[in-house]
């Protein structure tokens, strides 16, 4: 297409989404540049997770526009599978495939979606398992792993598709406190390597540390955004102050 890397990798303009009579997203515009790390924070039910699912067309939007590398997601002729090859996603509940080993989970999509050779895919999958510090757990089934380990397998599984951008949907919300850190370290390493990331999180300390831009959403709109230093020290909006006083 006409997209070049100096344009936003993800460009959202006035995105709106209703579930029945309930407005979930009420006009959100966000740009994500290549290599940027965006954190979206805000109270529960603010539409953060839905917004992420709109980016890879898991949830269709009602109006507005989302482009990923110049490709319009809200286009009925969209090749969803092509879009999803570029956009990786990690979920709150990990959603690993319980009937396959950790390594097989990582290998499945490159094998069956990208139709690449098994030897090559397996070598890469093993490298990814090392990257998320799970070497030695290749043959474990998801049920035999802790929450934090499962989540890191899920990150490796998503990375195996070599996506251009990664979406993280409250990936530490279901974890025990002691395993949260290992997952956050993995994400931070990714961010430092230059992976474009959109992260929905409740971990304020992490957001402050890793984000280039922080967006606070509430009731389907962006209340305030800015680089972390600015965002946390001199926020202007009353709702932001209220939210931060509750979570910090």
């Amino acid at each position: 297409m006409g997209w070049t890397s100096d344009q936003p990798l993800i460009r959202m303009r006035d995105v709106r989404k209703k579930f029945g009579a309930l407005t979930i997203i009420d006009g959100i515009s966000i740009d994500v540049m290549k290599g940027e790390v965006i954190c979206i924070i805000g109270p529960s039910g603010a539409g953060k997770s839905t917004l992420l699912r709109c980016i890879n067309a898991l949830v269709p939007i009602d109006s507005g526009s989302i482009t990923v590398e110049g490709q319009e997601v809200n286009d009925p002729k969209l090749d969803k599978l092509a879009l999803r090859r570029k956009v990786g996603m990690v979920f709150q509940q990990y959603n690993l495939f319980p009937h396959r080993t950790a390594l097989a989970n990582v290998m499945m999509a490159p094998l069956h979606v990208l139709k690449r050779g098994r030897a090559e895919v397996e070598a890469e999958a093993r490298a990814l398992m090392r990257k998320v510090r799970l070497d030695g757990k290749e043959d474990s089934y998801p049920g035999e792993l802790s929450g934090g380990q499962q989540q890191r397998v899920a990150i490796a599984r998503s990375l195996a598709m070599q996506p251009d951008v990664m979406l993280f949907d409250e990936v530490t919300a279901a974890l025990d406190p002691e395993t949260v850190k290992e997952v956050l370290v993995t994400i931070r390493e990714l961010a430092e390597e230059g992976m474009t990331c959109v992260i929905v999180t409740h971990e304020m300390g992490f957001a402050r540390e890793v984000a280039d831009q922080i967006y606070l959403t509430d009731r389907g709109v962006v209340v305030e955004h800015g680089p972390p230093a600015e965002f946390f020290t001199n926020c202007r909006d009353e709702r932001t102050r209220q939210f931060l006083s509750q979570v910090l």
Binding site: R84, M89, F91, L96, H112
Partner: peptide
């Protein structure tokens, strides 16, 4: 089968048939 299994498969760019064959039916 939990909806998350469908979602994860879709997010990995599996087609519906692949999702059924590789993820859902084996379970």
């Amino acid at each position: 089968i939990p909806a998350g299994q469908w979602e994860a498969s879709e997010a990995l760019a599996f087609s519906r048939l692949q999702t059924l064959r590789l993820v859902i039916l084996p379970q």
